[in-house]
Write a protein that binds this DNA or RNA. Structure first.
Lengths: 248, 248
DNA sequence: CCTTGACATTAACGTAACGTTATCGTTTAG
DNA sequence: CTAAACGATAACGTTACGTTAATGTCAAGG
C-alpha cells in the first residue's frame, strides 16, 4: 500500500504542503509514479515521517532532524540529553525574562504610587513619613490632608490617566531642554506641569519652588528624573525658579 | 548633537543595519541631511530607541512595540501584564516539552536495559522470571549465570556502545530484506548479529535458533522487531534457520 | 464522450528581524 | 590628491511552511 500526499498528510496530521516541503529539502523523499509524477509514500516513508514529527515536537529544527536521521549510528540518547540542556537554557532565559517583566510591572506599580503621590509620600514607609512630616512642617496639616483627599477621590483609571499625562509632561520638558530653562518653550512646559500637579493639591508658589528643590536634593527623586534624561532635575529646578519669579 | 547611524549604533549596542531596518519599517525615522541624505539621530530618537530596545528585550515584536509607542496614551502596565501572561504560557509549553524529552530519555534508558538483556530478562519482573526459568531449562544454570556475568562486566559506556551496534545490526537486516532471508546479504547480516550477541553469551546453534523463535513467538519481542520494520521478526527467524543449517 | 469536482503538480510570493554582500557616492586623514 | 573609512540603497538569504495561482490527472455521472 502506498499513500498519496494528501492521504499521508491526513494520516499523519500534517499538511500536504509540509510533505512537499520535506521532499524539497530532501528530508523525506517519496517514490514517484512515472506515469504522472505523483508522490508515493510507502511504509518506510511513513515510519520516517513518524520519527521526523516526533523529533519536531521535541523542538528540533528540520536541519537537525535530517542530520540525526541520516546518521545511521547516531546516539539518540546523547542527542536528547544535549537537546534537553538547550531547552533548559531556553527555559532559564524565559524565566529571567518573566522575572524582568514582573520587576518592571511592580516597579511601575510602585512608581505609580510614588509618581502619583511622590510629592508627599515617596518610596519606603520611612521616606513616606519623612516626606509627610516635612510637608506638614512646610505647608501645614490642612494642605497635606487635602492633597491626600484629592488624590484618593480619583478612580484607578483616572489615576493611571493622570500618570500618563505626567509622563508626557516630563517628556516634553526633555524636548525643550535645548532651548534653555528660561525659554518660551520651557516656560510653557512648566505651566503645563503646574496644571498637572493640581491633580495632587492646590500648589502655592512656595510649593512649586519647593518641588524644584526636592527633585534635585532628594537622591531618589533626583535619580528618577535623571533617568528620564540626564540633567532633567537641574533643568526643572531652574525653569521652575524662572516660572515662580514671573508669577510674583 | 546629532548622531550618524554608526555612532548611534555603537552607543546603543546594535548594528547599523538594525537602524536602517527600523527606519525602513517606520519604527524609528531619523532626520536627513539634505546635502547627502545621511541619517541624523537627535536626542529624542535616542530616547525612542532606548524604549524600543527595552521593550524588545522583554520579548515584544517590533510590530507590537510600534503600536505601543505610537499610541500616546497607551497603558504600559496593561500591556506588560498581557505580555507576562503570554510569556508564562510559553514557559508552560517549554516545561511540557522538557518533561516530554525527559520522559523519552528515561523511556529510552529503560528500553536500553530491556533491549540489552532482553534475551534473558525481558520487560516485567514476571516476564523476567519466565525468560530466566525458560533459559535455565533450555540452556542450563551455568550458561545463564555466565551470561549475566558477561554483561555485567561491561561499563555503562560500553553497554551503550553495544546497544548502538545492535541497532545498526537490526537496521542492516531491514535493508537486506528485499534480497530474501537466504541471500548472501542476509546471511552476512546474521553472521554479524551472531558476533554481536556474543556480548551477552557464548551462543550455541540451539540458542541461535531459539532466539529466532523467541523473536516471533513472544508478543513483546515480536512487537519490538516489527516496530523496527514490519516483517523483520519473521525474516530474522528464516534467515537464522538458514544460517544454522549452514553451520551444521 | 464530455463535464465536473476532487485531487495532483510546480512556481512563486509572504512571513520576522535582521545579516550579508555588492555597488556606488561622500567625508576625512595623511 | 588619494585611499581609507563611512554613508546610501538594493537585493538575496535565513525558517518552516501558508497561501494563492496556473495547470495537469483521475474517477464518476450524464
Amino acid at each position: 500500500m502506498r499513500y498519496t500526499v494528501r492521504q499521508l498528510a491526513v494520516i499523519a496530521g500534517v499538511s500536504a504542503r509540509t510533505l512537499h516541503y520535506y521532499d524539497e529539502i530532501n528530508l523525506l523523499k517519496p517514490e514517484r509514479n512515472p506515469a504522472n509524477g505523483y508522490r508515493l509514500y510507502d511504509r518506510t516513508a511513513v515510519l520516517r515521517l513518524q520519527q521526523i514529527l516526533f523529533l519536531r515536537e521535541l523542538g528540533f529544527s528540520l536541519e537537525e532532524i535530517r542530520e540525526v536521521l541520516d546518521q545511521p549510528d547516531f546516539n539518540l540518547l546523547a542527542v536528547l540529553e544535549q537537546h534537553r540542556l538547550s531547552l533548559q537554557a531556553r527555559g532559564r532565559k524565559l524565566a529571567d525574562l518573566i522575572a524582568t517583566v514582573e520587576r518592571t510591572i511592580s516597579f511601575l506599580k510602585g512608581a505609580i504610587e510614588m509618581d502619583v503621590h511622590e510629592l508627599f509620600d515617596g518610596f519606603s514607609e520611612e521616606k513616606q513619613k519623612q516626606y509627610k512630616e516635612e510637608a506638614r512642617r512646610r505647608y501645614g496639616d490642612q494642605k497635606v490632608d487635602e492633597s491626600y483627599q484629592r488624590w484618593d477621590s480619583y478612580s484607578d483609571d483616572q489615576k493611571l490617566e493622570i500618570i500618563q499625562e505626567g509622563k508626557a509632561v516630563y517628556q516634553d520638558m526633555v524636548e525643550v531642554m535645548p532651548y534653555g530653562p528660561s525659554s518660551q518653550q520651557a516656560q510653557e512646559g512648566i505651566a503645563r506641569w503646574h496644571q498637572h500637579i493640581r491633580h495632587f493639591y492646590e500648589p502655592t508658589v512656595e510649593i512649586l519652588a519647593g518641588l524644584g528643590d526636592l527633585y534635585n536634593d532628594d537622591p531618589q527623586f533626583n535619580a528618577t528624573f535623571n533617568r528620564i534624561h540626564p540633567g532633567l532635575a537641574a533643568f526643572m529646578r531652574l525653569a521652575i525658579q524662572v516660572y515662580c519669579q514671573s508669577l510674583s
